[in-house]
């Protein structure tokens, strides 16, 4: 019984992390295919548009005493990390100096592109929260969906 409970908690954490890495993955794995596909297409499509506008995810200055420290950049980074898989790809692209993306920090569209990435990431935080609330919140058995809001 204890082992079963641990496995269920572990798989729940895995599903939440999976939903964070790939938008909609948790819904698909719980056989809610249309919702998972819609979330995946909308959020990754928005992220892709941000990349096409010469945007990318940049690591901000974390040292608060540095002249380059900017709280807006820091919050933007945290928001963009909501779409974790795509953001980690951008960070790896920057670190490993791949030549796939057309990111250009001096481009006039760069700030607008950052907004696209930000909306994609922040809305995935909503999706992960909704997934947790629907399937994993306290008091719900496995496979039981939230009754409220279902019509």
């Amino acid at each position: 019984m204890e082992l079963e409970r641990k496995l269920s908690v572990g798989s729940g954490v895995g599903l939440v992390v999976g939903s964070w890495l790939v938008p909609g993955l948790g819904f698909v794995l719980r056989r809610n295919y249309w919702r998972g596909a819609a979330v995946f297409l909308i959020l990754n499509g928005t992220f892709l548009l941000g990349l096409l506008l010469h945007g990318t995810v940049l690591v901000p200055e974390f040292r608060y005493y540095s002249p380059a420290f900017n709280i807006v950049n820091l919050l933007t980074f945290i928001g963009q990390l909501g779409n974790a898989g795509a953001s980690l790809f951008c960070l790896a692209h920057d670190r490993l100096q791949w030549d796939i993306l057309r990111a250009d920090e001096t481009h006039p569209w760069f700030d607008l592109a950052a907004l696209y990435l930000l909306v994609s990431g922040c809305m995935n935080y909503f999706c992960v929260g909704s997934f947790y609330d629907r399937y994993l919140a306290a008091g719900k058995t496995q496979g039981e969906e939230r009754a409220g809001g279902e019509q």
Binding site: R35, A38, V39, I42, L43, T46, P108, W109, L112, L115, Y116, V119, S120, M123, F126, C127, S130, G149, E150, Q151
Partner: peptide
């Protein structure tokens, strides 16, 4: 062109936000 791009982005991103909220809230 930049102005139109910003206006269009405002409309599009507003659709993304509201559509995702609707998808999470309703089943049809």
């Amino acid at each position: 062109l930049n102005g139109w791009l910003y206006v269009g982005s405002c409309f599009y991103l507003a659709v993304v936000v509201t559509l995702i909220l609707g998808i999470l809230e309703f089943d049809e």
